[in-house]
Write a protein that binds this DNA or RNA. Sequence first.
DNA 1: CCAAAAGTGTTCCGGGTACACCCATGG
DNA 2: CCATGGGTGTACCCGGAACACTTTTGG
Lengths: 249, 249
Amino acid sequence: MSRAIPTPGLPPTAALLPVTVDVIGLTVRGGVLQVLLVQRLLEPFAGVLALPGGFVLPDETLEAAAARELVEETGVAPPGHLEQLRTYGPLDRDPRGPVVSVAHLLLAPAFGLPAAGGDAADVAWHDVRPLLAGRGGAGRALAFDHARILADGVERARAKLEYSALATAFCGTEFTVAELRSVYEAVWDVRLDPRNFHRKATGTPGFLEDTGRTTSGGTGRPAALYRLAEAAGDPAAVVLNPPLMRPDA
Amino acid sequence: MSRAIPTPGLPPTAALLPVTVDVIGLTVRGGVLQVLLVQRLLEPFAGVLALPGGFVLPDETLEAAAARELVEETGVAPPGHLEQLRTYGPLDRDPRGPVVSVAHLLLAPAFGLPAAGGDAADVAWHDVRPLLAGRGGAGRALAFDHARILADGVERARAKLEYSALATAFCGTEFTVAELRSVYEAVWDVRLDPRNFHRKATGTPGFLEDTGRTTSGGTGRPAALYRLAEAAGDPAAVVLNPPLMRPDA
DNA sequence: CCAAAAGTGTTCCGGGTACACCCATGG
DNA sequence: CCATGGGTGTACCCGGAACACTTTTGG
């Protein structure tokens, strides 16, 4: 098995492998957790839904590669929070041979997608629930090992909402407590008590900041508008203490 | 930059990268958290301490590669729990060029190492604390970006002790509550109340199982010997509910 | 006035912390 | 009988869950 050595100085035992990034792009639309999927054009798995992704170039970081692939496949630069999830080993992933894939998690407010059938493959939001439930069942399956990767990503998102301000990554810059609660309910797939959630969210130090403005036009009393507490460039860096705990279920 | 394509069928945009595994091997000896380090024989960083690791072969999983490297560098097959930590991008890691490294975390009881100056590089246990504190300070630095990787690994270990039974991975198959507490104290670098810890550890369902046997010979009352609750092949899979929380500090 | 959603006050209770106290062994 | 560490009982207190109640808008 002879391979070109790209970098002088690396020992001859240095086998080279194709390295890809896959992106689990999550959003909350209509109170439901959704994931960004593409329909594959080429074999293997032509026509099957898959996570967006592609090969890492040698002169970019993993995160930059994930961001670049998102731009290439969606046509826009998505807002939101991007972080590495985990890496899936070279074996039993791609029928063409060994491939290492570094999965990334994107948590973003719902953003517009180019009209279906655009330049790349068909890209659209899909409800997460049937994709998780349909292990080998009724739901449409995902290509490669992407069902497993999606499950890992959703679990990471669920866990991180507990002890960080990451839920705000699903919202716009300003949002109501009810919108934030809707994010928690969608991601955790539970009902939360609006009154206790309100007290908890507004009472946690370093989490929310009142803008002084309110909503208008809706039915019922107007809601105060909040934003993520300032000096928090990355909502993942905000440690919620005490955490917002999900019910035992 | 021309590269050989190892697998027919992959698109020509598929750049190949050297992929390595690094292992953060943690243990608790004498009430102190320690990490397994090698002294590098070759440039770059010849003579500098580094995490053990090496290149991934195309026909093995990432975890298998990590386990293989451990055997090669320590001369023994270490016991304990091995899990993937995270992956460090191709840039600004190795002066020789882009390298992707998948870091793994090993939590193990203290195991013997071959006599210093054995077959591979000099491998030994080192206290973790000065390596974390000596950011750019007094402590001896680690090669490459290994100081950062070590910090990430220790933080993962600290977090996982809270809500899983992973602390038992540092112990033998049978251990006392005091030994288990010593693990928590070493990893978290705190003092814990022995009485409350005892109640908490023995009272958490699915965690500990009384063997019925006790220690003997030490000073004071003999301690009951426990083992990890059965049907728990992997202690990381045991969810502690409620968790053992580390003090705020 | 009524419906609906926002926001507050209050009660109950489980679990963590602090610490007094008893138990079992070696010397 | 004393020192040492193992193990239990208990009182206090904080924070989450449940839910009654008030506030503010539109119709």
